[in-house]
Computed example of a mutant assay.
Amino acid sequence: MAEDADPGFAPLTARAVLLGERIDTAGLERRDVLSTTPLAFKVGGAGGLAIVFRYGVVVLIGLDTLAEDEVIRGVGPRVIDPFALHEEEAVQLAPLDGRDERAELDGTVHIADLSLERLLCVADALAKSAALAHDERQVAEVLDRIEPWARTLAERGRQPASRRTTLQMLGEGLLVQHRVAGRVAVSEKPDLLWDRPDLERLYARLEDEYELHERAEILDRKLNLIGQTARLITDLMDTERALRLEVIIVALIAFEILFSLGQLAWRIAH
């Protein structure tokens, strides 16, 4: 997969698999490493490639099912907080057909050749799309739990969630926000574009095809909604707690007054 790779290559599949929150790449260095950021190395003897991203995604290019499973098993012990459900994104890489490099609606990406830089460019967009799909599903689950709370508040005028449940919901939203803005860094372009500005057009078209920026912005708005809702819930809980405390204080004062009046009446009577 050198820079002067034959442009007339046979179509092959690139698959991104989200394995967990993070992957510790410190122990995955190999002799045949092709890139360190992200970590990329050859697999098999037919030009297969595995690319490991620290935010939990492995991209497998040109591998059959058995080779993919072998790579995933090898990376498995390095996965931190593995997910039970693996999010996947796949595309078909095909040579140019007389037009520019582009991504088709049917999931085919036409590229000039199989150079490492181009494959890393495709892998970066594919990995971010898989990570966003997981975050979108996680945020949707949080919003599904918010909906009945909002309905109960509108119909009965009270909140049904406990403080612990509210804090858990807020924590899940913060984790997704940290993942999108921090580890995955969807808005940031891959470092290789600094050395290969000629690949910016290809990456821009991949960004548009997977709607990376738009999906990240929608996630950010949903996360803001989750944060506002969680703050509203905690404010209502604090208000109810303060009201109960005031009622208890008033009751204690009234009891003390009645007790004092009772003692005074007893003294007067005797």
Rank of each mutant, 00 (worst) to 15 (best):
A2M: 01
D4F: 05
G8P: 02
L12V: 15
T13N: 01
G20E: 01
G20V: 07
D24F: 11
T25E: 11
R31M: 08
S35Y: 02
T37S: 08
K42Q: 11
G45H: 06
G47W: 05
L49K: 05
L49Q: 09
I51Y: 02
I51S: 03
F53Q: 03
V57K: 03
V58C: 09
I61M: 14
I61G: 10
L63Q: 02
R73D: 15
V75G: 05
E89C: 05
A94E: 12
E101W: 04
E104S: 03
L105S: 12
L105E: 14
L116T: 10
R118K: 12
C121R: 00
A127W: 10
A130G: 10
L132A: 09
A133Q: 13
R137T: 11
A150T: 15
L153E: 04
R158K: 04
T166M: 10
L167Y: 01
M169N: 07
L170Y: 01
V176E: 02
Q177M: 06
R179H: 15
V186H: 03
L192S: 11
R201A: 15
L202S: 13
Y203L: 04
L206H: 07
E207K: 02
E214I: 13
R215G: 12
L219W: 10
D220M: 02
D220F: 04
R221T: 11
L223Q: 03
A230M: 04
I233K: 01
D235N: 05
M237D: 14
T239H: 08
E240A: 08
R241Q: 10
L261P: 01
R267N: 12
I268V: 15
H270F: 08
